[in-house]
Structure formats: structure tokens, C-alpha cells
């Protein structure tokens, strides 16, 4: 029963799968993201209250959404690292942490730029904004901790523990707008209810999220491949692949 699970952990097997997936992820991601963004920027109607400044939502929500889901994926990989000692899980955490950092930064930046014309301030220490800033520091901490420890195995374990400790921040980000008084409004996209957004705005937003998801998939694949190449450079299969000139 666990056989497929261990096969999944084989770097060689992953390398091949990633090679096949990547063109689709890249093309699909770029096209869908471009459609969503252009639709949102030029064709979606303006908001009755905020006018055109709300168009920032078409990148603010996707980056914020991805920043959190990437962290959840990292936490799952951290459990796999600690329990099954699967190398590929650790490779994933190290490969995507910088992507998560950039996405979190973009979510904070676009939020700040959006806050100025709508709320009247770039920044406020409310629960949502602060917990999102903590997420940025968590990503930074994961990257720094990994660099600080030279031994691969101890680094993997230390990083996995840090990722798991930080995962409590994710529900705090999500529910901060409901548990406490915040300046940030509650979520527009809800899991169980109808989204509180007109469909002419909602469809481009969902497209942007999907596009960015696919693009993240491509980034994860290529960065994991890099990490695998560095780690497995002395193995036979890497040697055969590299010498065959396949990319």
C-alpha cells in the first residue's frame, strides 16, 4: 500500500514527471493568468464604492491566497520529512520557501498600495496585516535556518520543525478578520457560502488565482529539479541523464 508513496519519493521518478508537466504548467499558467489580469484590468466593471482602485484585487488576492497555500503545502511536506524521512519532501520545502517569500511580500505590498486610496493609510497594525507580516518572517526564517545549518539532515529536521511551529499562524491569518475587530474587511471568497462579488469580477479573479497556481507549480518543479541536481550530482542516473544531454 505504501509502495506508491515511496515511489513518489524517488528523485529520479520526480525529475521525469516534472519534465513532462512543466511545459503545460508554464503555458497554462501564463495564458490563464494573462487572461485573468487583462480581463480584470480592462474589461471588468469598476466597483460601485472603490472605483478602479479595486482592480488591485486581481493580484492581491491570488498572491495572498498562494502565500498561505504554499505554507500549508510546506507544512504537509514537513510532516513527511519528520515522519518518513523522505528526501523529496525536504527538497520541496527548500525549493518553494523563496517563492512563498516573494508571494507574501507581493500580497503585503499590493495590500499597502491598495490601502492608501481606500482606507487612507499604507499600514495599520490590525490582526490581519500583522499575521501576514509574521508569515513573511516565517518564510524568511525558514530560508535563513536552512542556510545556517550545513549538515543536510539536521537542516531538514530543524526547518521542518520551524515550518510546523509556524503553521498555527495560517488559521490566525484566515480567521483574524472574524475573531477580532480589524480594518481589513472579511473574506470575499468563502468556502461554504456564495462569494460576495459580482460574477463579472469574480470570474477574472478565479482565473488569476488558477493561473498563479499553475505558475507556482512550474516554479516548484524547476526549483526542485535544481535542488535534486545539486544533491544527487554523484549518482548514476544524474550522470546518465546529464551526459545524454537531455534537459
Amino acid at each position: 500500500m505504501w509502495q506508491w508513496f515511496h515511489k513518489l519519493g524517488s528523485p529520479k521518478w520526480f525529475f521525469g514527471i516534472a519534465n513532462r508537466l512543466m511545459p503545460w504548467l508554464l503555458a497554462g499558467g501564463l495564458i490563464i493568468l494573462a487572461v485573468g489580469v487583462v480581463w480584470g484590468l480592462a474589461f471588468a466593471p469598476k466597483d460601485y464604492l472603490q472605483g478602479n482602485s479595486y482592480r488591485i484585487i486581481f493580484i492581491h488576492v491570488p498572491t495572498a491566497f498562494l502565500a498561505q497555500s504554499v505554507y500549508i503545502m510546506m507544512a504537509v511536506a514537513a510532516v513527511v520529512t519528520l515522519v518518513w524521512r523522505m528526501k523529496l519532501a525536504d527538497v520541496f520545502v527548500k525549493a518553494v520557501a523563496p517563492v512563498g517569500l516573494v508571494l507574501t511580500f507581493l500580497a503585503l505590498f499590493t495590500g499597502a498600495v491598495w490601502g492608501k486610496p481606500t482606507w487612507g493609510t499604507w499600514w495599520i497594525w490590525d490582526a490581519r496585516l500583522t499575521s501576514m507580516l509574521i508569515l513573511l518572517f516565517l518564510y524568511g526564517g525558514v530560508i535563513a535556518l536552512d542556510r545556517a545549518i550545513n549538515d543536510e539532515k539536521s537542516a531538514a529536521r530543524a526547518v521542518a520543525v520551524l515550518v510546523l511551529v509556524g503553521v498555527v499562524n495560517i488559521p490566525i491569518i484566515k480567521y483574524s478578520v472574524e475573531w477580532w475587530n480589524t480594518l481589513h474587511q472579511p473574506a470575499t471568497l468563502k468556502l461554504t457560502e456564495k462569494p460576495s462579488m459580482s460574477s463579472e469580477m469574480l470570474i477574472p479573479l478565479l482565473l488569476s488565482i488558477l493561473g498563479l497556481y499553475l505558475l507556482f507549480g512550474w516554479l516548484a518543479c524547476i526549483r526542485m529539479q535544481t535542488e535534486i541536481l545539486v544533491r544527487e550530482q554523484r549518482t548514476k542516473w544524474v550522470r546518465e541523464m546529464v551526459m545524454a544531454g537531455r534537459n
Binding site: I56, L106, P117
Partner: peptide, 14 residues
């Protein structure tokens, strides 16, 4: 963008 151009374009640029 009815005056919101700099904000919107700064975000998309970044």
C-alpha cells in the same frame, strides 16, 4: 484609471 492609475500600475508593475 480615474486617478487611481499610479496605485494600480505600481502593484501590477511590482
Amino acid at each position: 484609471m480615474e486617478g487611481h492609475g499610479p496605485y494600480v500600475w505600481a502593484c501590477y508593475g511590482a
